[in-house]
């Protein structure tokens, strides 16, 4: 599903040139649950952004679903993204002016799903996330765990092939964090490919493979012993 070869990302400011990714080769197959770990600044979020098609690499190749996408325009990336990828963030990133229902509905509007089907699918996914009773609330009226459940619901409402999660438990207490991780595992079991960035070894081990990064390079990859 995902294959990169010599992926490079360089940030330039007026005087400083920072290499965030340095010749990164990764491959992720359909159905995998991969965790990316590493210290702050190692390039893991940059890698996630590039793999999630919200940023372009400075060099190297990136094949996503058999498309070579490293030179895609924002518009092309946007089209590929909205039909295939769901995002979950550490800070939830819900839109404050929209209700729970409307936040989850948004990806369906952008993929031009009809209003009747939208309602059905949003209700279905909210049911699944156990958020039906809060469907007309605004994000500020919810707890952190509830907000992240809404964010997950929004990420999966389009049935994406790939779910990208950037420290999804970073802002949650351990019990809410566990809930989110279990949800991800469940989604993985239902067939979704998941790629997660995390600081926590505990969370990382919910996946079946861990990629460790340091200074913009992949240092080790090991398979997790499944205990769930």
């Amino acid at each position: 599903m995902i294959k990169t070869k010599g992926l490079v990302k360089v940030y330039r400011t007026d005087e400083v040139e920072t290499t965030a990714l340095n010749e990164v080769d990764v491959e992720i197959k359909q159905g995998e649950f991969v965790s990316i770990m590493g210290p702050s600044g190692c390039g893991k979020s940059t890698l996630l952004n590039i793999l999630g098609l919200i940023d372009n690499p400075s060099g190297g190749e990136y094949h996503f679903l058999d498309h070579e996408v490293s030179n895609y325009s924002e518009r092309q990336r946007s089209n590929l993204r909205k039909n295939n990828i769901g995002f979950i963030f550490q800070s939830f990133n819900l839109i404050d002016e929209l209700t729970v229902f409307e936040n989850v509905e948004l990806p369906l509007i952008y993929t031009k799903v009809g209003s009747k089907e939208r309602k059905e699918r949003v209700d279905e996914v909210l049911e699944k996330m156990n958020m039906m009773h809060r469907r007309n609330h605004f994000p500020q009226q919810l707890s952190g765990g509830q907000q992240q459940r809404v964010a997950v619901a929004r990420a999966i409402v389009n049935n994406p092939k790939l779910i990208l999660a950037d420290e999804p438990t970073g802002n949650l207490d351990s019990s809410n964090g566990d809930d989110v991780m279990k949800t991800l595992v469940h989604l993985n079991q239902e067939g979704a490919t998941i790629l997660m960035v995390t600081h926590s070894q505990y969370c990382a081990e919910f996946g079946n493979r861990i990629i460790r990064m340091l200074d913009g390079q992949v240092v080790t990859e090991n398979v997790v012993q499944q205990y769930l």
């Binding site: 924002e74 993204r81 839109i95 929004r154």
Partner: peptide, 16 residues
């Protein structure tokens, strides 16, 4: 800016 980012990630393009 954050709202714009979220929307784009979810699938909004510039036009929308």
């Amino acid at each position: 800016a954050r709202e714009v980012g979220v929307r784009k990630v979810i699938g909004a393009n510039q036009g929308t």
